[in-house]
Amino acid sequence: MQYMLLINEDESIYEGEEGAKKMEATLAGHMALAQKWAGKGIAFSGERLKPGSTATTIKWDNGSHALHDGPFAETHEELGGFYIIDVDSLDDALEWAKQIPVPGKGAVEVRPVWPMEG
């Protein structure tokens, strides 16, 4: 079964010289995790996302809509990227999600993919 791992983190920790070092270390952690998945034969895909400040959100209200700059959620963390992994169970997905490098504060949401029919 496929699970999406949505990585939410505070983008501000990557600012400045120290932030650049933290970003480099975090990316190395992601590459190491991808190598683990490949070594275990786990099918996966994923992408980084541009900062939340580049987002545009469409909000609907009873049939009408409005555009808003920025991400939808009003939190201190932004959606920074995602993986889709194909594993046997939610427990497996959770174990892999715990290994995603998230420096500072953040969260990884694990959600089953609902395949399209047809």
Rank of each mutant, 00 (worst) to 15 (best):
L67C: 07
W96D: 01
E78F: 00
V102Q: 01
D88W: 00
L5N: 00
K50R: 08
A66K: 15
L79A: 10
P101W: 02
G80I: 00
T75S: 15
K50F: 05
S45M: 12
A107Q: 05
F44W: 14
V87S: 08
T54V: 09
G104A: 09
P71V: 11
H76G: 15
E74W: 08
D61G: 03
K59T: 13
D91S: 14
D69S: 14
M1N: 07
A20Q: 15
Q2C: 00
G118F: 06
Y3G: 08
T26W: 03
W96C: 02
E18Q: 10
I84Q: 04
V87Q: 09
K22E: 11
K36A: 12
E15C: 03
A20K: 15
M4T: 04
S45C: 12
E24N: 08
W37R: 00
L6A: 02
V110I: 15
A66D: 12
G16M: 12
P51T: 09
L33W: 03
D91R: 08
G70P: 07
F72Y: 15
A107V: 08
L6V: 01
D61W: 10
D86M: 04
I42N: 01
I100F: 03
N62Q: 15
D61F: 13
P101K: 07
P71Y: 13
D10L: 06
A25R: 12
T26C: 12
E11T: 12
V110R: 03
E17F: 14
S12N: 10
E18K: 11
A25W: 01
G19Q: 07
K40D: 14
Q35V: 05
F82A: 11
G70W: 03
K59F: 11
I84E: 05
E117C: 00
K59I: 11
I7E: 00
E109W: 06
A66Y: 00
G19I: 03
A43R: 05
T56M: 12
T26G: 03
L5Y: 01
W37Q: 00
V87H: 13
G80Y: 04
A20H: 14
I13M: 06
K98H: 14
E18V: 05
G104I: 07
P71I: 13
G39Y: 01
G29Y: 04
V110D: 04
G16E: 13
M23D: 09
Y3H: 09
S64Y: 02
G81W: 05
Y14K: 13
A97E: 03
D86S: 14
L67T: 04
A55P: 01
G104C: 08
E9F: 04
K22W: 02
L33I: 05
M1V: 10
M1D: 09
E109V: 12
L49D: 03
D88T: 13
I84P: 04
P71C: 06
S89H: 12
D86R: 08
G19F: 13
P101N: 04
A20P: 01
N62E: 15
F44Q: 09
M4I: 11
T56N: 14
E11F: 10
H30S: 10
A97Y: 04
A55S: 14
G16R: 13
G29V: 06
G81S: 10
